[in-house]
Structure formats: C-alpha cells, structure tokens
Amino acid sequence: MVERSPGIGGAEAVRLEHEQRRRNRLLTEMLDHLEATRGPVDERLVRKYLDLLA
C-alpha cells in the first residue's frame, strides 16, 4: 500500500495505489509466464543476484 503523505490529495493517492497494484500484477504475470516456459527458478541464482544487489 502506498503511504499517504500530507502533500498528496485523495485522488492522487488512489492513482498511485492503482499504479503500484498494476505493476505488481504485471510482474506476477511475467514471472508466471517465465516459470511456465523456462521451468522453475534456480534459488541459487536468486541468492547470488540478491547478494550482488545488496
């Protein structure tokens, strides 16, 4: 959920929340598609890249 800061009006907060949910839905769909076409995720690679990003 998007934190509502004092400077953001109600309509803007709703727009931001909607956009965040849309991005999350699209990411989930993309990951599901990749798993269906390329197989399950290699958890070792996930840990490797998370460590690199940290």
Rank of each mutant, 00 (worst) to 15 (best):
Leu50Trp: 11
Glu19Met: 15
His18Val: 14
Val41Thr: 13
Leu27Asn: 10
Leu50Phe: 10
Glu3Pro: 05
Arg23Gly: 01
Gly9Asn: 10
Gln20Lys: 13
Arg23Val: 13
Glu19Ile: 14
Met1Tyr: 11
Asp42Pro: 04
Glu29Ser: 06
Met30Tyr: 11
Glu35His: 01
Gly39Glu: 11
His33Arg: 05
Val46His: 04
Val46Gln: 04
Asp42Ile: 10
Thr37Ser: 07
Gly39Tyr: 06
Ile8Phe: 08
Tyr49Ser: 08
Tyr49Ile: 11
Arg22Ser: 14
Ala36Asp: 13
Val46Cys: 02
Leu45Lys: 01
Thr37Ile: 02
Gly7Tyr: 05
Val14Gln: 08
Leu52Thr: 08
Arg23Lys: 11
Glu3Trp: 01
Arg4Tyr: 02
Thr37Gln: 07
Gln20Trp: 06
Leu45Ala: 04
Met1Ala: 11
Met30Ile: 10
His18Arg: 05
Ala13Glu: 00
Ala36Gln: 15
Asp42Glu: 03
Arg22Gln: 15
Leu50Ser: 13
Val46Met: 07
Val14Gly: 00
Leu34Thr: 07
Met30Arg: 12
Thr37Leu: 02
Asn24Ile: 13
Asp42Phe: 01
Ile8Ala: 08
Val2Phe: 03
Arg15Cys: 14
Gly10Ala: 14
Leu45Met: 02
Arg44Gln: 05
Arg23Pro: 03
Arg25Pro: 03
Pro40Asp: 03
Leu52Arg: 14
Val14Phe: 01
Arg21His: 13
Leu31His: 12
Asp51Asn: 12
Glu29Asn: 09
Val2Ala: 04
Glu43Phe: 09
Ala54Arg: 12
Leu45Val: 00
Arg23Cys: 11
Glu35Pro: 01
Leu16Ser: 05
Gly10Trp: 10
Gly39Cys: 03
Ala11Glu: 08
Ala54Ile: 09
Tyr49Val: 15
Ser5Cys: 10
Glu43Gly: 00
Glu17Phe: 03
Glu19Ala: 15
Asp42Trp: 01
Pro40Ile: 10
Thr28His: 09
Arg15Asp: 08
Asp51Met: 03
Gly9Thr: 12
Val14Asn: 05
Leu27Ser: 09
His33Lys: 10
Val14Lys: 05
Ala11Arg: 02
Gln20Ser: 04
Asp32Val: 09
Val41Asp: 09
Leu52Asn: 08
Glu12Pro: 01
Glu35Phe: 05
Arg23Ile: 12
Ala11Leu: 04
Leu16Phe: 10
Val2Asn: 11
Tyr49Cys: 02
Gly9His: 07
Ala36Lys: 15
Ala11Asp: 07
Asp32Pro: 00
Arg23Tyr: 13
Glu12Ile: 09
Arg44Gly: 00
Glu43His: 09
Glu43Pro: 06
Asp51Ala: 14
Leu53Ser: 00
Thr37Val: 06
Arg25Thr: 04
Met30Asp: 04
Leu52Val: 10
Leu27His: 07
Arg22Glu: 15
Glu3Lys: 00
Thr28Ser: 08
Lys48Pro: 00
Ser5Asp: 06
Gly39Val: 05
Gln20Arg: 15
Val41Ile: 15
Ala13Thr: 10
Asn24Phe: 13
Leu27Tyr: 01
Thr37Arg: 09
Arg4Thr: 15
Glu19Pro: 00
Arg21Thr: 12
Leu26Val: 09
Tyr49Ala: 07
Leu53Cys: 06
Met1Phe: 03
Glu17Ser: 06
Glu43Cys: 04
Glu29Gln: 09
Val2Met: 12
Glu35Ser: 03
Tyr49His: 09
Glu12Cys: 10
Asn24Gly: 12
Asp32Ala: 08
Glu12His: 01
Glu3Ser: 01
